[in-house]
Design a protein around this nucleic acid. Structure first.
Length: 257
DNA sequence: CTTAATGTTCCCCA
DNA sequence: TTGGGGAACATTAA
């Protein structure tokens, strides 16, 4: 559920509640949600809540908590714990439920913040993005999904960015001109910024920390639109599989070279 | 019953 | 080291 715009929306809706609050008790209700000891968190104060790609990082006065939302993870402020609540964090002023149906998400306590992922697409320049892209040789969609290449783009926004840039998802990165690679970055950055303004995409169950859905799904042009007419040329949107992920594109508007 | 789902990781092969 | 391909993880919905 969470890509960059959704993670950013969760951060913005959670930060005001957490910053300055002290954690009083943490409970892990599923063995697979965390390998850390919940007792280590009691007594720490939250200094900051930030996004790292599509992940969410809590800065504590002593250490860090990295929340990976997986496919169905949600951080909910003061919601009623339910059957899918995998972790419960109680603070002086309220509590956070980490709900996650499929349990691909996790919560880890770290001594230092992570730094293993690639640059944030909203921070890197188009020229640097194009240079990085052109020194690789693979299908462009696979590269966009590689968090070590850029952090934060997932299946929805990869398809939408490639459509907006007019690039075929299976285009070889080596064969994309520098100008088109820069255009891909510009399209992706504008897409992500607009999606943030719309508080993300809620296609199945994504909600922010207040339980609110996003609205950007109404502006999707190809994702989940197989068989529908392309808004630009009228051709039928096609669905193929790239890197084991469902991939949606317009066969006429999106070029391989 | 089968397939697919906003993700990541591990394994094997070239 | 890079890239390709596949399986696995857990759960729900169509």
């Amino acid at each position: 559920m969470p890509e960059l715009p959704e993670a950013e929306t969760i951060v913005r809706s959670l930060r005001g509640h957490l910053e300055g609050a002290r954690i009083t008790r943490v409970e892990f209700r599923s063995a697979r949600v965390s390998k850390s000891d919940p007792a280590r968190l009691a007594g720490t104060t939250v200094a900051g809540v930030n996004r790292y790609g599509k992940q969410i990082l809590w800065e504590l006065d002593r250490g860090w908590v990295l929340v990976k939302l997986g496919m169905t993870g949600a951080l909910l402020w003061n919601s009623e714990p339910g059957p899918y609540t995998r972790a419960l964090v109680e603070l002086t002023n309220g509590h956070v439920c980490f709900d996650d149906i499929r349990q691909f998400g996790s919560l880890s306590v770290m001594a230092t913040p992570p730094n293993t992922l690639g640059p944030d697409p909203l921070e890197i320049t188009s020229a640097a993005f194009a240079q990085r892209l052109r020194q690789r040789d693979t299908e462009v969609k696979k590269l966009l999904l590689d968090q070590k290449f850029v952090r934060g783009i997932g299946n929805i926004y990869a398809d939408e960015a490639l459509f907006r840039a007019g690039i075929h998802p299976k285009a070889r990165t080596r064969q994309i001109s520098a100008a088109r690679a820069r255009g891909l970055h510009l399209a992706a950055a504008e897409l992500l910024r607009t999606a943030i303004e719309h508080r993300g995409s809620s296609i199945s169950d994504y909600v922010d920390a207040g339980g609110e859905r996003g609205s950007f799904q109404s502006l999707h042009l190809v994702y989940g639109k197989e068989g529908e007419s392309c808004r630009t040329c009228g051709s039928a949107i096609r669905r193929i599989v790239v890197g084991q992920r469902g991939t949606h594109f317009c066969p006429r508007c999106q070029k391989r070279t």
